[in-house]
Simulated scan of single mutants.
Amino acid sequence: MSKTIQYFFAPQSPYAYLGHQRLLRLAVQYGAMIEPKPFDLGQVFAQSGGLPLAKRAPQRQAYRLQELRRWSDHLGLPLNLQPKFMPVDQTAASLLLVAARELAGADQALELAGAIMRAVWVEEQDIADMGTLRSLAEDCGFDGAALLVAAATTDTQHIYQAFTQEAIQGGVFGAPWYVIDGQPFWGQDRLDFIERLLQAR
C-alpha cells in the first residue's frame, strides 16, 4: 500500500494553513510522500454546491470564526480571524506554487505554500500582489523573478487546471483535502485519521 498523500489545497484557506505544518511533520515521521496539488476552490464550489464565504448565511459565518479561534488556540498557531487581505484572488499564488513544484519539486513547493499561507493569516500580506509573491519566493530560496515568469506560462496554467479538474472528478468539495490509497479526508481536523492510517502501513 502507498504512503503517498495527495494534498489538494487552496493557499487562501485558513484550514489549509492550520493543518499544513502538521501534515508535513506526519509525512516526515511516517516516511510518506506528499503530492501538492493547488486547485481552484471557486471552480470546485461551483460544481459541488459550495458557497464563497461572503455568500454563506450569517450564522455559518459566525460559527466559522468560533471554530477558527478554537483551532488556533488548540494548535498554538497565530491566526488573524479577519485578515486585511481577505477575500483574495488565489490564482497568482496557486500558479506560483504549481511552477515551484514543477521547477524544484514537492518539498520546496510545500515550503513556499506554508510561507504564502502565513502571509495571509499571520502577516497581513496580499498574496494577489506580484511583489509580495516574489518576496515570499525569494525568502524560500527561489529566484523570485524567474518563478513569476514560469507561473505565467501556458504550461503552468494547464497543470493548475488539470489539478482542478482532478479535484472535481475525484469528488473534492473543500480544502484542504487529502487522499491516501483512494481514501479521501476533508479538512485538517481529519489529520488524526491520516496518522492512524500511516501508522498501520
Score class of each variant (00 low, 15 high):
Q6R: 10
Q21I: 06
R70G: 07
G50R: 12
R69Q: 15
F45W: 14
S94D: 12
F9N: 01
W121E: 08
G182V: 13
F193V: 06
Y63P: 07
L197M: 14
A16G: 11
G144D: 14
N80S: 13
S135Y: 15
A32T: 08
F9D: 04
P184S: 03
V122A: 08
G19I: 13
A104N: 04
Q21S: 09
D129G: 08
D107W: 00
G131Y: 02
Q125V: 09
A92S: 14
A99K: 01
P14W: 00
V149C: 02
G42P: 03
C140F: 09
K3S: 11
E102H: 00
W186V: 02
A62V: 09
Q125M: 15
A175P: 02
L147H: 09
I127S: 01
L147W: 07
R201M: 14
L79R: 02
L136I: 06
P87A: 00
A16M: 00
Q183M: 12
R196V: 03
E35A: 07
K55I: 02
R201H: 15
E111D: 05
L112A: 03
Q108W: 02
D189N: 05
L18W: 09
A32Q: 10
V179C: 03
R60D: 06
A119M: 11
V120D: 10
P36V: 05
V122T: 11
G50W: 11
L147A: 14
L103T: 14
G49F: 14
D139A: 15
F39Q: 06
Q90H: 11
G131C: 10
Q165D: 14
A151L: 11
Q165G: 05
A151T: 14
V44E: 12
F9M: 04
G114L: 07
G144Q: 11
R201K: 14
I127N: 04
L191E: 05
E102L: 08
F185C: 07
D73C: 12
S135H: 15
T132V: 15
P11A: 04
R201Y: 15
Y17Q: 08
F142N: 05
R201P: 02
A167S: 03
P176C: 05
L65A: 12
K55E: 13
F85A: 00
C140S: 12
A152Q: 09
T156R: 10
T156N: 13
A152P: 02
I180F: 00
L68K: 05
R60I: 07
D126E: 11
A200F: 05
F185S: 02
Q61M: 09
G19D: 07
V122D: 08
I180L: 06
D192S: 00
F185R: 01
T132I: 14
A175G: 03
